[in-house]
Amino acid sequence: MRREIRITGFGGQGVILSGVIVGKAASIYDNKNATMSQAYGPEARGSACSTQILVDDKEILYPYIRKSDVLVAMSQEGFSKFVGELKADGVLIYDEDMVNPGEVKKGIKVYPIKAQRMAETDLGRKIVTNIVMLGFFTAVTQAVPKEAMVEAIKTSVPKGTIDLNLKAFDLGYDAFE
């Protein structure tokens, strides 16, 4: 089954790295096909930024999202831009301190989290907000097995930050009841 996932935020929040981790987890550590791509503005930081990950058992032919199954939003701008492409029964995950979703269409399953605040207060490092988000995303969607995500994080983040990132992942994962 093809699953289409969009992660969006500002440049500098680690949006693209999040996409790489999800895609790597699915394709290398869970043996599926996973195509990840990115869109960004000319600015290095602060501009709207998004990544899309397509996961399928079959070969992936069409390389972009047509209707997303999951939207992970870490900025208001990204949310507004991409909420429209969510399927009628899609999953919306967002950081409540950064996104005010307003009225969301009936049928869409909504999962808010305070990822940035948790990264700051529990770990003292705002920089791992994206990994807290990925933990939560993994628990909510089960799109990729937890073990595969952990392996992908270990091989994608800078050496010396693995423990911090795994803690951040667990923090997000455990936030979903």
Partner: peptide, 9 residues
């Protein structure tokens, strides 16, 4: 560009 920027195994 699509193949250049697409990430796969």
């Amino acid at each position: 560009e699509c193949v250049g920027h697409m990430v796969e195994k």
